[in-house]
Computed example of a mutant assay.
Amino acid sequence: MAIKKLDFYLPNDLNASLPPEKRGVRRDHVRMMVLDRTTGEINHDHFFHLSQYLQTGDLVILNNSRTIPAVLHAEWVRSTAQLAPKVEVRLARRRGEGTWEALIVANLVKTGDRLQFSPDLSAMVRAEKENSPLKIIEFTKKGTDLFNMIYALGEPIRYEYIEQPWDLDYYQTVFACHPGSVEMPSAGRAFSWELLFKLKCMNIQLDFIQMHTGLSYLLDDQWHQRPEENEEEYQIAEGTMEKILETKASGKRVIAVGTTVVRALETAAMNGALSGMTNLYIDKHFPLKIADGIITGFHEPKASHLDMLSAFISESLLLNAYDQAIKAGYLWHEFGDMNLII
Rank of each mutant, 00 (worst) to 15 (best):
K86N: 07
R94H: 03
E88V: 00
G98N: 15
L103W: 10
L83W: 01
W100F: 15
L103T: 07
P85M: 01
L103Y: 11
E101S: 13
A81Y: 09
A92C: 13
L91I: 08
E88T: 02
L91Q: 09
V109Q: 10
A92M: 12
E88M: 02
V87K: 04
P85K: 01
E97H: 11
L91H: 09
L103C: 11
A106F: 04
S79W: 14
E101V: 07
I104L: 15
T99W: 12
G96V: 07
W100K: 08
A102T: 10
A84P: 06
S79I: 04
E88R: 02
H73M: 10
G96C: 06
L83C: 00
V89D: 04
A106E: 04
A106C: 11
E97I: 06
R78P: 06
K86D: 03
A92S: 15
N107C: 08
R90A: 10
A84V: 01
W100D: 08
V87C: 05
K86F: 08
R93A: 06
E101W: 14
K86Y: 08
A74Y: 00
R93Y: 12
I104T: 09
A81K: 14
R94A: 06
L83N: 01
A106V: 05
S79R: 15
L91D: 12
T80N: 12
W76G: 01
W76K: 03
L103R: 14
A81G: 04
I104M: 10
E75V: 15
E88S: 03
E75W: 12
R94Q: 11
T80Q: 13
E101G: 11
L83F: 00
P85R: 00
R90Q: 15
A92P: 12
L83D: 01
P85V: 00
G96P: 07
A102H: 11
K86C: 06
A81R: 14
V89S: 04
V105K: 15
E101F: 15
V105R: 15
V105C: 13
P85H: 02
R93V: 09
V87H: 04
P85Q: 03
R93D: 07
I104Y: 09
A74D: 01
R94D: 03
R93Q: 09
L103P: 09
R78G: 02
R78K: 03
L83I: 00
I104H: 12
G98W: 08
R78A: 00
G98E: 14
E97K: 12
L83S: 00
L103I: 06
W100C: 08
A92D: 10
E75C: 11
Q82I: 04
V77E: 05
A74V: 02
A74N: 02
I104E: 07
R90V: 08
K86W: 07
L83R: 00
T99L: 13
E101R: 11
A92Q: 10
P85E: 02
K86P: 03
E101P: 13
A84N: 02
R78F: 00
V87P: 06
S79F: 14
V109H: 12
R94E: 05
R90S: 10
W76F: 05
G96I: 07
N107Q: 14
V87A: 05
K86T: 07
A106W: 02
A106H: 06
Q82V: 05
T80S: 13
W76L: 13
V109R: 12
E88Y: 00
P85T: 00
H73Y: 15
A81D: 11
L108D: 14
P85I: 00
A102Q: 11
G96Y: 08
R95G: 12
